[in-house]
């Protein structure tokens, strides 16, 4: 009898393990929490957790992907701000032709929702859409129903503080200089070991972002299309690799032409 029971448990355990191993995890799971609140607004923290090998796209200049989006169905007088706090993305180059800026593992974003002062809690629907890719791409969406306004979640304030801390801000003026040239812009960060530039989605087209936007040394020459439809300054995120292995970053805007 004991032997039978041991065999049964062994079979049951094996079945559970097989089911666990063979089940494909969802590429993306999304959660939301209230990370700050006052009388007439609150800050939501959205967390996109990604399965291994999958990535989401940033709101930067990408050849293929698009960033996640949120669309609220809000009561009259309420308003949702934009998704904010995009972290530093990774460059993703495919076959020397395609350049995207991506996030793997986890993407956290914040969003302010303005409501009527002293509004009582109610259920609010938020529709999220994203494109998640690995070897293949899958568009995803979900509708989350949130009770807003509501109390700040446990640990939410600390996570929001960490998120704000990690969000790239303007590059200190002393960190780099930029000047327009006949065919583009040159960014110089004295003493840098390596420079990377992540162009914003809007702005003049780069002649060859794959070749130009990363370079060893303290100078980056970004060639720009002069007849680009999108006129105006070139803006984006500059990532500076220092000789002591530190990495600093910040947003930069360079007038063009």
């Amino acid at each position: 009898m004991t032997t039978m029971r041991v065999l049964f448990y062994a079979w049951f355990l094996a079945a559970v393990l097989v089911a666990t191993v063979s089940a494909e995890p969802e590429p993306v799971t999304v959660s939301a929490e209230i990370a700050a609140a006052d009388r007439d607004s609150l800050v939501l923290l959205w967390t996109f957790d990604l399965a291994d090998r999958w990535h989401l796209y940033g709101p930067h200049r990408n050849d293929t992907g698009q960033p996640p989006s949120v669309r609220f169905d809000l009561p009259d007088g309420w308003r949702a701000g934009p998704l904010e706090g995009w972290p530093v993305p990774e460059r993703h180059v495919v076959a020397d032709v395609i350049l995207d800026h991506i996030y793997e593992r986890r993407l956290r974003l914040r969003q302010t929702v303005h409501h009527l002062a002293g509004a009582s809690p109610r259920q609010v629907a938020a529709e999220l859409r994203w494109l998640v890719c690995a070897d293949l791409c899958v568009p995803g969406d979900t509708v989350l129903t949130l009770d807003l306004p509501g109390p700040v979640s446990a640990g939410g304030a600390a996570r929001l503080a960490n998120h704000r801390e990690a969000t790239p801000g303007p590059l200190p003026a002393a960190a780099a200089t930029a000047r327009a040239t006949a065919d583009g812009v040159v960014i110089t960060a004295p003493g840098a070991l390596r420079l990377e530039f992540v162009p914003d989605a809007r702005g003049p087209d780069m002649v060859d972002a794959i070749a130009d936007a990363v370079r060893d040394g303290d100078e980056l020459h970004l060639r720009l299309e002069r007849d680009s439809d999108a006129a105006g300054p070139l803006s984006g995120l500059l990532i500076i690799h220092h000789p002591d292995d530190r990495k600093t970053h910040g947003t930069i805007t360079v007038p063009w032409p």
């Binding site: 050849d63 293929t64 992907g65 698009q66 495919v94 076959a95 032709v97 395609i98 995207d100 890719c133 070897d135 293949l136 791409c137």
Partner: peptide
């Protein structure tokens, strides 16, 4: 252009 990346 939009869509999936070309799977080169």
């Amino acid at each position: 252009a939009y869509g999936c990346s070309v799977k080169y």
